[in-house]
Design a protein around this nucleic acid. Structure first.
Lengths: 117, 117
DNA sequence: ATAACAATTCTATCATTCTAGAAACGTAGA
DNA sequence: TCTACGTTTCTAGAATGATAGAATTGTTAT
């Protein structure tokens, strides 16, 4: 994952409402939730909600699909996976740093455990 | 790690200059670097640099210590560690999500591998 | 087509963040 | 103490982000 993309993802998550939206969607599982339900659960007016969903969409953290009259938003778990990879690779080791999942050699970079498969 | 703190850390890292500063510090190791050197390496005027360092400091991502005329800033790796933990616990699993380091039961929450020791 | 509902864009307003010059502060050597 | 050097605070302007009402677009059923 490139640094520029990482910043997009970090920015998207660095906001109370958006982090709450994302966590709610993760909790709901891959099905996701329609916009109205998200707004109801979090108490957000639809204009505000739409604004934040667009941000999450642009950052690649969620996907949307139409189903009847509803538009379902679902989380993209692999985006978090990649963010964690970036942080582990760029912000932990480097010159003797000690972090997360035992750096084997320099980490095979994106073997992708789970997700996406 | 509480959600509010997580947002602080995410916000701090979600900015090009600050992410660059942090990565540079990680690369330099626990000794850190004096402000002037950081500014020189990244081409940032000192007022701007100070502003960003303060942000990183408030988010708990760096520490500072005076050494003679210089003030050294060093990375707090454990902050990343905790961020990764938060993301893994709150933004991955939940209802069948698939992510990072194989969730045993619900993850012993902060056993802290490496770092801080 | 019309009505009812879901969601997004338009628009304006308010708040925060970024940038950087200039001034002030702190530290150390002469 | 004076001077030099490193860093921070002050300040203000520009840019970006957040909020939400109102209007609009899209979807389905009648």
């Amino acid at each position: 994952m490139k640094t520029a993309d990482t910043i997009k993802v970090l920015s998207a998550l660095a906001q109370e409402s958006r982090l709450a939206i994302f966590r709610l969607l993760v909790e709901q599982g891959p099905e996701g939730l329609p916009v109205g339900m998200i707004g109801e659960r979090l108490g957000l007016p639809n204009a505000t909600l739409s604004f934040h969903l667009k941000e999450l969409l642009h950052a690649g953290l969620v996907t949307s699909r139409q189903s009847g009259r509803f538009i379902y938003y679902a989380p993209v778990i692999s985006a978090i996976d990649e963010l964690v990879d970036y942080l582990t690779e760029n912000c932990c080791v480097g010159s003797g740093g000690t972090c997360a999942p035992a750096p084997a050699a320099k980490r095979p970079a994106a073997v992708k455990r789970g997700t996406k498969a």
